[in-house]
């Protein structure tokens, strides 16, 4: 390798790093300037002390957990069944799980509102619980591409067909097989899908805003429109949470590598 290509390689790398980190650095630097003339954490203190921040953030965390549970309940049996009994249906199911990436959330939420409004046959938007449920279902759909892919990849690492047959020959029914054999073996995959879901739900704006639920996304937007320094502090916090999630995924997948199922 010549000196020139080496220099070019380094230059590209440094350019890439700068491309990502300069704006982030600027953001962080600006978020520290709430007090005139000196760096301080005032903006952070104010954000964290805001009862609305706490309320919306805990609401979104709760919704994220509900979404994850619904997602697992839908995706794990589906991916398992497709792998076991309907391999021909895989391309179709994969296509369907990709739809949320193609159809904008705004279209989905307008569809929801038209379909489940108070004068429809299933007036979900008529009550708070109904609207919350609708929001959770919407989130589940937004997270579907990530959840399905993660679980499907997890199922690929185990011999689903033979394990299922072994469990059946030992007297286990479908529920037992899913709960005791399949799910425990795809835990790392389910977790990585769950963290991605978590990150999506925490930052989601469209669904929550149009269904008028007090989630973190709309709060972020409102602060951004009305305050000077706090939105940047919030962004840094949001980044921190997302990166925390990614780090957790890394950690979990490393643990799973330590105990490979050797089949």
């Amino acid at each position: 390798m010549s000196l020139l290509t080496r220099i070019i390689g380094w230059a590209v790398l440094i350019f890439g790093l700068l491309y990502f980190f300069v704006p982030l650095g600027g953001l962080f630097e600006f978020s520290l300037r709430a007090r005139r003339g000196v760096y301080s954490l005032d903006a952070y203190v104010r954000v964290l002390a805001d009862p609305q921040f706490q309320a919306t953030f805990s609401y979104s965390v709760f919704m994220a957990l509900v979404t994850i549970v619904i997602g697992i309940l839908i995706v794990v049996p589906t991916a398992f069944w497709v792998r076991l009994k309907m391999p021909w249906a895989r391309p179709y199911v994969e296509f369907m799980t990709l739809l949320p990436l193609v159809i904008p959330a705004i279209v989905i939420v307008f569809g929801y509102i038209r379909l489940y409004n108070t004068s429809s046959w299933l007036p979900l938007t008529g009550s708070l619980t109904g609207t919350n449920a609708l929001l959770a279902f919407g989130y589940t759909m937004l997270a579907l591409p990530y959840m399905y892919r993660a679980v499907d990849t997890g199922l690929r690492t185990i011999d689903v067909a033979t394990l299922t047959e072994a469990a059946q020959s030992l007297g286990a029914g479908w529920i037992t097989i899913l709960r005791r054999v399949i799910l425990p073996n795809v835990v790392p995959a389910v977790l990585s899908g769950a963290f991605l879901t978590f990150a999506i739900v925490i930052g989601e704006f469209t669904l929550a805003a149009l269904l008028d639920r007090p989630a973190f996304g709309p709060y972020l937007q409102r602060i951004g429109a009305n305050k000077a320094y706090e939105p940047f502090a919030l962004s840094v916090i949001a980044f921190g949470i997302t990166w925390g999630c990614l780090a957790l995924i890394q950690l979990v997948s490393r643990f799973s590598k330590m105990a490979p199922p050797r089949i």
Binding site: I158, D159, T162, L163, E165, G171, I263
Partner: peptide, 20 residues
């Protein structure tokens, strides 16, 4: 009868032990 109701024991070529 379904497999789970037949009370048979089966051993597979691929062992098929539950990895978890």
């Amino acid at each position: 009868l379904k497999t789970s109701q037949r009370n048979i024991g089966m051993v597979f070529q691929a062992y098929a032990l539950f990895p978890n």
